[in-house]
Simulated assay, not measured.
Amino acid sequence: MGKRNYLIEGVSCTGKTTVCNELQSRGYHAIHGDRELAYQGDPETGEPTNSGTHENHIWDLDKVKACVANSDEEITFFCGGSRNFSKFIELFDGVFVLDIDRGTLQQRLDERPQNEWGAKKSERDLILRLHETKEDIPKNGVLIDGTKSIEQVVDDILFHCEKNDRQQT
């Protein structure tokens, strides 16, 4: 929904939702992808499933394309994780990957409410493995230190957006 569109990705508990909230509080157009675009489906075909698994947590490709095509906003941030990001990543002007150390990740997992994804041992084990292997996050994104204060994290993202804009003009 922006003339410029950025994806903010990262392993669970790196701060994607918090970044989205902070961007919105600063007046930026930011989409909670995990709430507004996500569903359970086959990452290759998009066909809906009832699996309830991490591997099938995908974003609706048509909705992503429609949001990117709408240029009502100067800049839009898409925040969240999707197992089918390879189907739409080329639509973005830039990609940011929130990154935290293992200790911070374990602390954040310990603080997760019992009803949120990542609270169960099997989910925690998967998150820790994905953090270690980085296997389901974009490889060429700009790494952002997610251990900083939320204000600093968002300032870093905005700095890179401005830098990207200057390079394109």
Rank of each mutant, 00 (worst) to 15 (best):
M1A: 15
G2P: 05
K3G: 01
K3T: 11
K3S: 04
N5Q: 08
Y6R: 04
Y6A: 02
I8N: 00
K16Y: 03
T18F: 01
C20R: 11
N21V: 02
G27D: 10
G27V: 10
H29S: 11
A30R: 13
A30Q: 08
G33Q: 07
E36W: 07
A38N: 08
P43G: 03
E44Q: 07
E44F: 01
T45I: 06
P48G: 11
T49I: 11
S51P: 00
G52N: 07
G52V: 04
G52P: 09
H54A: 04
H57W: 11
I58G: 00
W59L: 05
D60W: 07
L61H: 09
D62V: 09
V64F: 03
A69Q: 14
S71W: 00
S71T: 09
E73M: 14
E74W: 09
E74C: 05
I75S: 06
G80T: 10
G80E: 12
F92P: 00
D93I: 10
V95G: 02
D101W: 08
D101R: 10
G103I: 02
Q107I: 03
D110H: 02
E111I: 00
E111T: 00
R112P: 01
P113F: 09
W117H: 14
A119N: 05
L126V: 09
L128Y: 09
R129M: 14
R129D: 12
E132G: 10
T133P: 09
K134I: 12
E135M: 06
P138Q: 12
K139L: 15
V142S: 04
I144N: 03
I144D: 06
G146N: 06
K148E: 05
S149M: 13
S149V: 05
I150V: 15
V154G: 02
I157L: 12
L158I: 15
N164S: 11
Q168Y: 07
T169E: 04
T169C: 00
